[in-house]
C-alpha cells in the first residue's frame, strides 16, 4: 500500500475522496452544459454569424478553463508561481503564434486577390 497512506496521514490538507470525486463530476457536467450551449448556438440558426462564433469561442474557452480547474486541479491560489508562469507563458506564445500566423497569412491572401 506504500506511500499513498503516508500522504493522507501527514497531509490532512488533501481533499477527501468524495470531494475529489465530485470535482470530476462537476467538471463533466460543466463540459456537457457548455458543449450543448455551443451546439445549440450553431444548429438553432437564430444567431447571426458573429454571435454564433463568439458563443462557440467563449463556450470553448470556458470549457478549457473548467477542465483545467476540475480535472487538472489548477488553481490561481495555493500553487507555486513557477507553474503558473509556465502556463501563462504558453498561452502568450500560443496567441502570438496562432494569431500572428492568421494575421500574416490573411494579409498575404488578401493582397493576392
Amino acid at each position: 500500500m506504500s506511500h499513498m497512506d503516508k500522504i493522507d496521514e501527514s497531509g490532512g490538507q488533501m481533499e477527501s475522496r468524495a470531494d475529489e470525486r465530485s470535482s470530476y463530476l462537476r467538471g463533466g457536467i460543466a463540459s456537457v452544459v457548455l458543449t450543448v450551449i455551443a451546439v445549440l448556438a450553431v444548429v438553432s440558426d437564430v444567431l447571426p454569424d458573429w454571435a454564433a462564433w463568439t458563443t462557440i469561442a467563449v463556450a470553448g474557452i470556458l470549457q478549457a478553463v473548467a477542465q483545467l480547474h476540475w480535472f487538472l486541479h489548477i488553481r490561481l491560489h495555493g500553487q507555486a508561481w513557477e507553474d503558473l508562469q509556465l502556463i501563462f507563458f504558453t498561452i502568450l506564445i500560443l496567441v502570438l503564434m496562432v494569431g500572428g500566423t492568421i494575421w500574416v497569412m490573411g494579409d498575404l491572401t488578401a493582397r493576392m486577390m
Binding site: 503516508k6 497531509g11 488533501m14
Partner: peptide
C-alpha cells in the same frame, strides 16, 4: 493542498521519499 509544488493532480507531500 498548498504544499504540492506541481500544477494539476495532487499526489503527495514532500516527506514522501519519491515525491521529489
Amino acid at each position: 493542498m498548498s504544499q504540492a509544488r506541481h500544477p494539476g493532480l495532487k499526489l503527495g507531500h514532500e516527506h514522501d521519499p519519491g515525491s521529489g
